[in-house]
Amino acid sequence: MAAYLLRRLSLMLLVVFLAVTLNFLIPHAMPGDPVELQLQQLSSGGGQVGDIGAMAAAMRARLGLDQPLWRQYLLYLGNTARIDLGVSIAHYPERVADTIAAGLPWTVGLLAVSTLVSFAAGTLLGGLLAWPDGSRLVRLLGIPVIMLSAVPYFVLGVVLLAVFGLIWPILPVAGGYPFSHLPRMDLETALLVLKHAILPAASIVLASLGTWAITMRGTLVGVLGEDYVMLAEAKGLKPRRIFLAYGVRNAMLPQFTHLALTLSHVVSGAILVEVIFAYPGIGYRLYQAIQAKDVFVVQGIVLMLSVSIAVAMVVLDLLLPLVDPRITAPGR
Protein backbone atom coordinates (compact mmCIF):
# COMPACT_ATOMS: atom_id res chain seq x y z
CA MET A 1 0.00 0.00 0.00
CA ALA A 2 2.76 2.42 0.95
CA ALA A 3 4.59 1.64 -2.28
CA TYR A 4 1.44 2.30 -4.31
CA LEU A 5 0.82 5.55 -2.48
CA LEU A 6 4.38 6.61 -3.10
CA ARG A 7 4.16 5.76 -6.80
CA ARG A 8 0.87 7.59 -7.20
CA LEU A 9 2.07 10.68 -5.37
CA SER A 10 5.38 10.81 -7.21
CA LEU A 11 3.51 10.55 -10.52
CA MET A 12 1.38 13.47 -9.41
CA LEU A 13 4.45 15.50 -8.48
CA LEU A 14 5.92 14.68 -11.88
CA VAL A 15 2.75 15.92 -13.55
CA VAL A 16 2.75 19.12 -11.52
CA PHE A 17 6.43 19.74 -12.20
CA LEU A 18 5.92 19.06 -15.90
CA ALA A 19 2.90 21.34 -16.04
CA VAL A 20 4.85 24.16 -14.42
CA THR A 21 7.80 23.64 -16.76
CA LEU A 22 5.62 23.44 -19.87
CA ASN A 23 3.86 26.56 -18.69
CA PHE A 24 7.20 28.32 -18.57
CA LEU A 25 8.74 26.82 -21.70
CA ILE A 26 5.94 27.04 -24.26
CA PRO A 27 5.58 30.84 -24.21
CA HIS A 28 9.37 31.20 -24.27
CA ALA A 29 9.85 28.74 -27.12
CA MET A 30 7.45 30.63 -29.36
CA PRO A 31 8.48 33.60 -31.44
CA GLY A 32 7.01 36.92 -30.41
CA ASP A 33 7.34 39.08 -27.33
CA PRO A 34 4.36 39.48 -25.03
CA VAL A 35 5.46 42.90 -23.85
CA GLU A 36 5.86 44.38 -27.31
CA LEU A 37 2.62 42.77 -28.41
CA GLN A 38 0.85 44.37 -25.50
CA LEU A 39 2.38 47.78 -26.10
CA GLN A 40 1.55 47.60 -29.78
CA GLN A 41 -2.02 46.88 -28.87
CA LEU A 42 -2.12 49.78 -26.42
CA SER A 43 -0.55 52.21 -28.89
CA SER A 44 -2.84 51.16 -31.71
CA GLY A 45 -5.66 52.48 -29.58
CA GLY A 46 -4.14 55.87 -28.76
CA GLY A 47 -1.71 56.56 -31.56
CA GLN A 48 2.07 56.87 -31.01
CA VAL A 49 2.79 57.44 -27.32
CA GLY A 50 6.56 57.78 -27.26
CA ASP A 51 9.59 55.50 -27.63
CA ILE A 52 8.09 52.01 -27.71
CA GLY A 53 11.52 50.38 -27.33
CA ALA A 54 12.28 52.20 -24.07
CA MET A 55 8.82 51.46 -22.76
CA ALA A 56 9.20 47.79 -23.59
CA ALA A 57 12.57 47.66 -21.82
CA ALA A 58 11.13 49.31 -18.71
CA MET A 59 8.18 46.96 -18.69
CA ARG A 60 10.44 43.93 -19.17
CA ALA A 61 12.64 44.97 -16.27
CA ARG A 62 9.58 45.39 -14.09
CA LEU A 63 8.24 41.97 -15.05
CA GLY A 64 11.67 40.33 -14.74
CA LEU A 65 11.82 39.43 -18.43
CA ASP A 66 15.31 40.91 -18.93
CA GLN A 67 17.03 38.17 -16.89
CA PRO A 68 18.74 35.13 -18.49
CA LEU A 69 16.37 32.23 -19.20
CA TRP A 70 17.58 29.85 -16.44
CA ARG A 71 17.22 32.60 -13.85
CA GLN A 72 13.73 33.37 -15.09
CA TYR A 73 12.92 29.68 -14.80
CA LEU A 74 14.19 29.41 -11.24
CA LEU A 75 12.39 32.61 -10.32
CA TYR A 76 9.26 31.27 -11.93
CA LEU A 77 9.50 28.00 -9.99
CA GLY A 78 9.99 29.91 -6.75
CA ASN A 79 7.14 32.30 -7.42
CA THR A 80 4.80 29.50 -8.46
CA ALA A 81 5.55 27.60 -5.27
CA ARG A 82 4.46 30.71 -3.37
CA ILE A 83 1.34 30.98 -5.57
CA ASP A 84 2.66 34.23 -6.97
CA LEU A 85 1.57 33.97 -10.60
CA GLY A 86 2.55 37.48 -11.60
CA VAL A 87 0.34 40.39 -12.51
CA SER A 88 -2.16 40.94 -15.25
CA ILE A 89 -0.85 43.01 -18.16
CA ALA A 90 -4.27 44.15 -19.31
CA HIS A 91 -5.47 45.10 -15.82
CA TYR A 92 -2.15 46.09 -14.28
CA PRO A 93 -1.48 45.76 -11.31
CA GLU A 94 -4.16 43.16 -10.56
CA ARG A 95 -2.55 39.93 -9.38
CA VAL A 96 -3.23 36.82 -11.48
CA ALA A 97 -3.81 34.79 -8.33
CA ASP A 98 -6.60 37.21 -7.38
CA THR A 99 -8.21 36.93 -10.81
CA ILE A 100 -8.23 33.16 -10.44
CA ALA A 101 -9.48 33.29 -6.87
CA ALA A 102 -12.38 35.50 -7.97
CA GLY A 103 -13.43 33.09 -10.71
CA LEU A 104 -12.81 29.81 -8.94
CA PRO A 105 -15.94 29.62 -6.73
CA TRP A 106 -18.17 30.10 -9.78
CA THR A 107 -16.48 27.35 -11.78
CA VAL A 108 -16.22 24.91 -8.88
CA GLY A 109 -19.85 25.46 -7.94
CA LEU A 110 -21.08 25.05 -11.50
CA LEU A 111 -18.95 21.95 -12.08
CA ALA A 112 -19.78 20.27 -8.79
CA VAL A 113 -23.54 20.67 -9.12
CA SER A 114 -23.77 19.78 -12.78
CA THR A 115 -21.44 16.80 -12.47
CA LEU A 116 -23.38 15.43 -9.50
CA VAL A 117 -26.72 15.82 -11.26
CA SER A 118 -25.52 14.35 -14.52
CA PHE A 119 -23.70 11.52 -12.73
CA ALA A 120 -26.78 10.53 -10.75
CA ALA A 121 -29.28 10.91 -13.57
CA GLY A 122 -27.03 9.33 -16.19
CA THR A 123 -26.17 6.36 -13.97
CA LEU A 124 -29.83 5.74 -13.25
CA LEU A 125 -30.77 6.06 -16.91
CA GLY A 126 -27.98 3.70 -17.94
CA GLY A 127 -29.17 1.22 -15.34
CA LEU A 128 -32.73 1.36 -16.64
CA LEU A 129 -31.46 0.96 -20.21
CA ALA A 130 -29.68 -2.26 -19.28
CA TRP A 131 -32.56 -3.67 -17.26
CA PRO A 132 -34.32 -6.38 -19.30
CA ASP A 133 -37.81 -5.40 -18.07
CA GLY A 134 -37.14 -1.70 -18.60
CA SER A 135 -39.99 0.34 -19.97
CA ARG A 136 -40.21 1.32 -23.61
CA LEU A 137 -40.34 4.99 -22.63
CA VAL A 138 -36.88 4.77 -21.08
CA ARG A 139 -35.49 3.12 -24.21
CA LEU A 140 -36.94 5.91 -26.34
CA LEU A 141 -35.50 8.51 -24.00
CA GLY A 142 -32.10 6.86 -24.16
CA ILE A 143 -31.56 7.43 -27.88
CA PRO A 144 -31.63 11.26 -27.94
CA VAL A 145 -29.69 11.43 -24.67
CA ILE A 146 -26.92 9.25 -26.05
CA MET A 147 -26.88 11.22 -29.31
CA LEU A 148 -26.59 14.47 -27.35
CA SER A 149 -23.58 13.08 -25.52
CA ALA A 150 -21.63 13.25 -28.79
CA VAL A 151 -22.11 17.01 -29.09
CA PRO A 152 -19.59 19.30 -27.36
CA TYR A 153 -21.10 20.96 -24.26
CA PHE A 154 -20.82 24.50 -25.54
CA VAL A 155 -22.44 23.73 -28.89
CA LEU A 156 -25.48 22.60 -26.95
CA GLY A 157 -25.07 25.78 -24.90
CA VAL A 158 -25.46 27.89 -28.05
CA VAL A 159 -28.76 26.16 -28.81
CA LEU A 160 -30.01 26.64 -25.24
CA LEU A 161 -28.93 30.28 -25.41
CA ALA A 162 -31.01 30.78 -28.55
CA VAL A 163 -34.05 29.01 -27.11
CA PHE A 164 -34.07 30.79 -23.74
CA GLY A 165 -32.62 34.07 -24.94
CA LEU A 166 -35.07 34.69 -27.77
CA ILE A 167 -37.91 32.22 -28.13
CA TRP A 168 -38.83 31.60 -24.51
CA PRO A 169 -37.12 34.17 -22.28
CA ILE A 170 -37.80 32.80 -18.82
CA LEU A 171 -34.20 32.33 -17.67
CA PRO A 172 -31.25 34.74 -17.53
CA VAL A 173 -28.79 33.92 -20.31
CA ALA A 174 -25.67 35.81 -19.28
CA GLY A 175 -23.56 36.48 -16.21
CA GLY A 176 -23.53 34.99 -12.73
CA TYR A 177 -25.98 37.49 -11.20
CA PRO A 178 -27.80 40.59 -12.50
CA PHE A 179 -25.64 43.66 -13.14
CA SER A 180 -28.08 45.84 -11.22
CA HIS A 181 -27.89 43.63 -8.17
CA LEU A 182 -25.15 43.99 -5.58
CA PRO A 183 -24.21 40.49 -4.42
CA ARG A 184 -24.88 40.05 -0.71
CA MET A 185 -24.97 37.07 1.58
CA ASP A 186 -28.74 36.65 1.59
CA LEU A 187 -31.40 34.38 0.19
CA GLU A 188 -32.30 36.73 -2.65
CA THR A 189 -28.73 36.71 -4.00
CA ALA A 190 -28.53 32.95 -3.60
CA LEU A 191 -31.71 32.49 -5.63
CA LEU A 192 -30.52 34.86 -8.33
CA VAL A 193 -27.18 33.09 -8.55
CA LEU A 194 -28.95 29.77 -8.78
CA LYS A 195 -31.22 31.05 -11.53
CA HIS A 196 -28.27 32.27 -13.56
CA ALA A 197 -26.54 28.93 -13.21
CA ILE A 198 -29.45 26.92 -14.60
CA LEU A 199 -28.66 27.27 -18.30
CA PRO A 200 -24.88 26.68 -18.11
CA ALA A 201 -25.49 23.72 -15.82
CA ALA A 202 -28.20 22.37 -18.11
CA SER A 203 -25.80 22.46 -21.08
CA ILE A 204 -23.26 20.42 -19.16
CA VAL A 205 -25.81 17.99 -17.73
CA LEU A 206 -27.63 17.34 -21.01
CA ALA A 207 -24.39 16.87 -22.93
CA SER A 208 -22.73 14.59 -20.40
CA LEU A 209 -25.73 12.53 -19.27
CA GLY A 210 -25.31 10.12 -22.18
CA THR A 211 -21.70 9.19 -21.43
CA TRP A 212 -22.63 8.12 -17.89
CA ALA A 213 -25.60 6.21 -19.27
CA ILE A 214 -23.48 4.37 -21.85
CA THR A 215 -20.81 3.25 -19.38
CA MET A 216 -23.36 2.33 -16.73
CA ARG A 217 -25.35 0.29 -19.23
CA GLY A 218 -22.19 -1.56 -20.29
CA THR A 219 -21.16 -2.38 -16.73
CA LEU A 220 -24.63 -3.38 -15.60
CA VAL A 221 -25.08 -5.79 -18.50
CA GLY A 222 -21.93 -7.51 -17.27
CA VAL A 223 -23.05 -7.51 -13.63
CA LEU A 224 -26.47 -8.93 -14.45
CA GLY A 225 -24.76 -11.95 -15.98
CA GLU A 226 -22.95 -12.74 -12.71
CA ASP A 227 -23.80 -15.82 -10.68
CA TYR A 228 -24.91 -13.89 -7.62
CA VAL A 229 -27.61 -12.18 -9.65
CA MET A 230 -28.88 -15.56 -10.79
CA LEU A 231 -28.83 -16.71 -7.17
CA ALA A 232 -30.85 -13.67 -6.16
CA GLU A 233 -33.38 -14.50 -8.85
CA ALA A 234 -33.51 -18.11 -7.72
CA LYS A 235 -34.13 -16.96 -4.17
CA GLY A 236 -37.20 -15.18 -5.53
CA LEU A 237 -36.16 -11.68 -4.61
CA LYS A 238 -38.22 -8.86 -6.05
CA PRO A 239 -36.85 -7.57 -9.39
CA ARG A 240 -36.67 -4.07 -7.94
CA ARG A 241 -34.44 -5.28 -5.14
CA ILE A 242 -32.20 -7.25 -7.51
CA PHE A 243 -31.93 -4.23 -9.76
CA LEU A 244 -31.01 -1.75 -7.03
CA ALA A 245 -29.13 -3.76 -4.43
CA TYR A 246 -27.46 -6.37 -6.64
CA GLY A 247 -27.15 -4.69 -10.02
CA VAL A 248 -26.89 -0.91 -9.71
CA ARG A 249 -24.94 -1.00 -6.49
CA ASN A 250 -22.19 -3.10 -7.99
CA ALA A 251 -22.19 -1.52 -11.41
CA MET A 252 -22.13 2.00 -10.02
CA LEU A 253 -18.72 1.80 -8.43
CA PRO A 254 -16.70 1.57 -11.66
CA GLN A 255 -18.48 4.79 -12.62
CA PHE A 256 -16.27 6.57 -10.07
CA THR A 257 -13.19 5.32 -11.91
CA HIS A 258 -14.70 6.68 -15.07
CA LEU A 259 -15.26 10.02 -13.33
CA ALA A 260 -11.59 10.18 -12.41
CA LEU A 261 -10.57 9.39 -15.99
CA THR A 262 -12.84 11.92 -17.68
CA LEU A 263 -12.39 14.74 -15.19
CA SER A 264 -10.14 16.82 -17.43
CA HIS A 265 -12.58 16.35 -20.29
CA VAL A 266 -15.48 17.58 -18.16
CA VAL A 267 -13.53 20.58 -16.91
CA SER A 268 -12.50 21.63 -20.43
CA GLY A 269 -16.11 21.34 -21.55
CA ALA A 270 -17.39 23.43 -18.65
CA ILE A 271 -14.85 26.16 -19.38
CA LEU A 272 -16.24 26.62 -22.87
CA VAL A 273 -19.82 26.65 -21.61
CA GLU A 274 -18.88 29.59 -19.38
CA VAL A 275 -17.76 31.50 -22.45
CA ILE A 276 -21.12 31.05 -24.16
CA PHE A 277 -23.09 32.25 -21.14
CA ALA A 278 -20.56 34.90 -20.01
CA TYR A 279 -20.51 33.06 -16.69
CA PRO A 280 -17.93 34.77 -14.42
CA GLY A 281 -15.84 31.64 -13.74
CA ILE A 282 -12.34 30.61 -14.75
CA GLY A 283 -13.33 29.79 -18.32
CA TYR A 284 -14.80 33.18 -19.11
CA ARG A 285 -11.80 34.88 -17.54
CA LEU A 286 -9.52 32.73 -19.69
CA TYR A 287 -11.49 33.78 -22.76
CA GLN A 288 -11.22 37.45 -21.82
CA ALA A 289 -7.50 37.10 -21.16
CA ILE A 290 -7.00 35.47 -24.57
CA GLN A 291 -8.93 38.29 -26.22
CA ALA A 292 -6.80 40.88 -24.41
CA LYS A 293 -3.58 38.89 -25.10
CA ASP A 294 -2.99 38.94 -21.34
CA VAL A 295 -0.35 36.18 -21.34
CA PHE A 296 0.24 35.99 -17.61
CA VAL A 297 -3.42 35.48 -16.81
CA VAL A 298 -3.66 32.80 -19.53
CA GLN A 299 -0.56 31.10 -18.13
CA GLY A 300 -1.84 31.29 -14.58
CA ILE A 301 -5.24 29.84 -15.41
CA VAL A 302 -3.71 27.07 -17.52
CA LEU A 303 -1.36 26.13 -14.70
CA MET A 304 -4.13 26.21 -12.12
CA LEU A 305 -6.24 23.89 -14.29
CA SER A 306 -3.45 21.36 -14.87
CA VAL A 307 -2.41 21.24 -11.24
CA SER A 308 -5.89 21.05 -9.76
CA ILE A 309 -6.93 18.27 -12.15
CA ALA A 310 -3.76 16.29 -11.35
CA VAL A 311 -4.46 16.63 -7.63
CA ALA A 312 -8.15 15.82 -8.01
CA MET A 313 -7.35 12.65 -9.95
CA VAL A 314 -5.02 11.43 -7.23
CA VAL A 315 -7.59 12.18 -4.54
CA LEU A 316 -10.26 10.28 -6.47
CA ASP A 317 -7.85 7.38 -7.04
CA LEU A 318 -7.01 7.17 -3.35
CA LEU A 319 -10.65 7.45 -2.29
CA LEU A 320 -11.78 4.65 -4.62
CA PRO A 321 -10.66 1.71 -2.45
CA LEU A 322 -12.63 3.25 0.43
CA VAL A 323 -15.82 3.36 -1.66
CA ASP A 324 -15.34 0.06 -3.44
CA PRO A 325 -13.78 -2.69 -1.32
CA ARG A 326 -13.22 -4.79 -4.45
CA ILE A 327 -10.54 -2.39 -5.55
CA THR A 328 -7.41 -2.86 -3.55
CA ALA A 329 -4.21 -1.11 -4.31
CA PRO A 330 -1.90 -3.34 -6.34
CA GLY A 331 0.98 -4.81 -4.39
CA ARG A 332 -0.96 -5.29 -1.18
Binding site: A29, S264, I290
Partner: peptide, 15 residues
Protein backbone atom coordinates in the same frame (compact mmCIF):
# COMPACT_ATOMS: atom_id res chain seq x y z
CA UNK B 1 -3.54 12.23 -20.03
CA UNK B 2 -3.58 13.94 -16.65
CA UNK B 3 -2.71 17.37 -18.01
CA UNK B 4 -5.90 18.74 -19.55
CA UNK B 5 -5.40 18.92 -23.30
CA UNK B 6 -7.19 22.21 -23.67
CA UNK B 7 -4.88 23.90 -21.18
CA UNK B 8 -1.70 23.04 -23.06
CA UNK B 9 -3.35 23.76 -26.40
CA UNK B 10 -4.48 27.18 -25.22
CA UNK B 11 -0.93 27.94 -24.18
CA UNK B 12 0.51 26.87 -27.53
CA UNK B 13 -2.20 28.50 -29.60
CA UNK B 14 -2.02 31.87 -27.80
CA UNK B 15 1.68 32.00 -28.52
Amino acid sequence: MTIPAIAVLVLVATN
